[in-house]
Design a protein around this nucleic acid. Structure first.
Lengths: 144, 144
DNA sequence: TTAAAAAATGAGAATTATTCTCATTTATTC
DNA sequence: GAATAAATGAGAATAATTCTCATTTTTTAA
């Protein structure tokens, strides 16, 4: 079965055209994309209101991650099964968003620190997000 | 000189009533506050458009930090001179936002890792943000 | 396989947060 | 203290997201 349909059926949500179209589009490249860009890409294929609904559905079944750029654009990206937790690097020159993997030993230290915070504040921490902001020294691929 | 006026004059922006009112309000308690709450607090004292302008001014002179909750509410908090870099803990039950200080050795490891990322991606990283999401095990002060 | 029930969609209206406009007021300069 | 520059208030404009509801599509289960 095609990936998009598989994702939907595995998560017990009904298989509909808009959902397939949105998923295919997100599967095409593994990069984060702004909702705005996605909307342009799918113009005349999926209604705006449906796009937002589908994105919500995908968030609910936890195959989609949503976050906000420093410029307040909403960005989405599929969560791939084979990928480990990753973070984001934002270029303030060109707006590019780069997925980054932190070194294993850093992640270990972070986990330990999170456990300490959980105890200290009597919290159950379910998720975390680390974002780095800066500019590419050489021009990055969109900077020119 | 009062703190609010001092902040403005030190940063060479003109001293006006709305700026003083907003600053006093933020100085009152050191906790993050949503723009929405701030707006209610200052109703009939500062026009909505002015509030947004003042917040922008404060961001520009780098005494105000702005970020977004997982529920997409915009939150602001003053940056106090005496405080070191801190992060945020969000309770998804009651919406409370808690300022947290990470252990010094964690911050050291993070700095090193950031340097590694800078080299790897040829980036100059100017800032970073670490956010933790979860729920308080005991009910936190707003949860009940 | 098909009829009935449930869920999802499209189109555009409604809502909400933020920015903009512009005439008036306030602050700064010299 | 007059002239100039900057900031404000009020509400209109904009933009992103959610909502409404009549219609279409999908699922269920006989």
């Amino acid at each position: 079965m095609k990936d998009s349909k598989k994702i939907l059926s595995e998560n017990k949500v009904s298989i509909t055209n808009p959902r397939i179209i949105v998923l295919e589009s997100l599967l095409e490249n593994r990069n984060p994309i702004t909702v705005d860009e996605l909307q342009s890409k799918l113009k005349n294929k999926v209604a705006k209101s449906t796009l937002y609904r589908v994105l919500n559905d995908l968030k609910n079944i936890k195959v989609l991650n949503e976050f906000t750029t420093p410029e307040n654009a909403t960005v989405v990206e599929l969560i791939f099964e084979d990928e480990t937790h990753h973070h984001h690097l934002f270029c303030s020159d060109c707006g590019e968003i780069i997925d980054i993997q932190m070194a294993a030993n850093f992640e270990k230290t972070l986990s330990k620190e999170i456990k300490r915070i959980e105890k200290k504040f009597n919290f159950t921490i379910e998720d975390h997000r680390l974002e780095l902001f800066g500019t590419c020294t050489d021009l990055c691929k969109n900077c020119n």
